[in-house]
Design a protein around this nucleic acid. Structure first.
Length: 377
DNA sequence: TATCGTGGAGGTTTTACGTCA
DNA sequence: CATGACGTAAAACCTCCACGA
């Protein structure tokens, strides 16, 4: 498992908005087996068009209308109407492979140089599986999902790349239109919306939409490109996935929260190891101090040594304890081989131990230095 | 400068789903 | 095998705040 952390990096702007939707292109720069998580924390350089605000306003207006239960306009409403149109018994048309291959899907906004149509690792023109799940497959109607997926060959007629259209019916809803987002501007509206859900004649309750694997993978790839969306990108994604823009927005919010949570966990682990290492270092220094004190009392001719200092080689950033003008001793001690006296604490970069670097090197800096030549310069 | 719209962050609630006894 | 309790992940929601017009 590899965890890649990118802090403060300005991601590339979305390119998919400028690309034709039928460009399912190679995603060859993201190959690699295993799980690789890319965390990008920092300001996003979102390229927003001039129409962003208009579309944002349009979207927000549509959302407000939707919140009022008025789905007669806007892209959202179109999507909603499309979903609500599935009043037929659940039918699943699955054109995707049985084994999930999320990372091998091609994505329209990720363009290769020649703009070819082959997806990385998975040629979308060769997705042969067609599975039709009869309505009886959904036993209790709970997971009455209608998964529609376009045949790759259907792209010929100017049809765009399409992800699976996953329309979830809800329990006892009798269709896909029972889902009503119950967030409204006012508490009264919220309450009334909830009441309208609860008091539904079918006794339906709001059910949470579970995104399909394909939709999640699609969003995940989008998130890797950009962890924030402008309204235009949001709308495009929503259309691609046949989701409401609000759903895309919420997904990105939650995804950012999860990313941050993971980062917090990583930071916590880092600090934990840091603490452990420093504790061990402290223990070792205490022990060393006790030994030196014992040596001093046992040997009256023992020359008093200055305090052991930590120095770091400027060239290789290795840290070593330095005891100037040492006196050879026969006692067994963890004190490293004495080094030369020319170490100047002011010239060394001390403190700030990288947690993954060995922090103590009992080597003689002049004799066994691995970077002797470069260190001399 | 005040106001408003917008979007993100942080936290919470709700729901779906897997596991296990 | 069926079932309920339980935990977890994720979708959805709410509130607050910063920022720009």
């Amino acid at each position: 498992m590899e965890l890649g952390l990118s802090l403060g990096e300005a991601p590339k702007p979305f390119g998919f908005l400028e690309k034709p939707r039928d460009q399912v292109v190679n995603h060859s720069n993201k190959k690699g087996a295993g799980f690789c998580m890319a965390l990008s924390i920092g300001p996003s350089s979102i390229s927003g068009g001039e129409n962003d605000q208009n579309q944002a306003d349009h979207e927000r207006q549509a959302q407000k209308q939707q919140q009022r239960g008025d789905d007669d306009d806007g892209d959202d409403a179109d999507v909603e109407n499309d979903q609500s149109a599935s009043t037929a018994p659940p039918v699943q048309l699955d054109l995707l492979p049985r084994t999930p291959v999320p990372r091998t899907h091609g994505f329209p906004w990720i363009s290769s140089e020649n703009g070819s149509l082959e997806a990385g690792g998975l040629d979308v023109s060769r997705v042969p599986t067609v599975v039709v799940v009869p309505p009886t497959a959904t036993e209790d109607g709970d997971e009455g999902a209608t998964v529609l997926s376009s045949s790759p060959n259907s792209n010929s007629g100017g049809s765009s790349f399409q992800m699976d259209i996953c329309l979830y019916n809800y329990k006892n809803s009798g269709g896909g239109n029972s889902y009503k987002r119950d967030h409204s501007e006012g508490e009264a509206e919220r309450a009334s919306s909830r009441a309208s859900d609860d008091d539904d004649a079918n006794g339906s309750t709001r059910k949470k939409l579970r995104l399909s694997k394909e939709q999640s993978a699609f969003l995940e790839e989008s998130f890797k490109e950009h962890n924030t969306l402008n309204p235009k990108q949001k709308l495009a994604l929503a259309k691609q996935l046949n989701l409401r823009p609000r759903q895309v927005e919420v997904w990105f919010q939650n995804r950012r929260a999860r990313t941050k949570l993971k980062q917090t966990e990583v930071d916590c682990e880092y600090l934990k190891r840091c603490c452990e290492t420093l504790t061990e270092e402290n223990r070792r220094l205490h022990k060393e101090l006790q030994e030196l004190r014992a040596l001093k009392t046992s040997n009256p001719f023992y020359m008093q040594l200055p305090a052991t200092t930590l120095t770091m080689c400027p060239s290789c950033e290795r840290v070593a304890t330095t005891t100037p003008n040492p006196v050879p001793t026969t006692t067994t001690t963890t004190t490293p081989t004495p080094t030369t006296s020319n170490s100047n604490i002011n010239d060394s970069k001390v403190v700030g131990f990288p947690i993954n670097k060995p922090r103590f090197y009992p080597f003689s800096h002049t004799q066994n230095h691995p970077h002797k030549s470069s260190a001399a310069s």
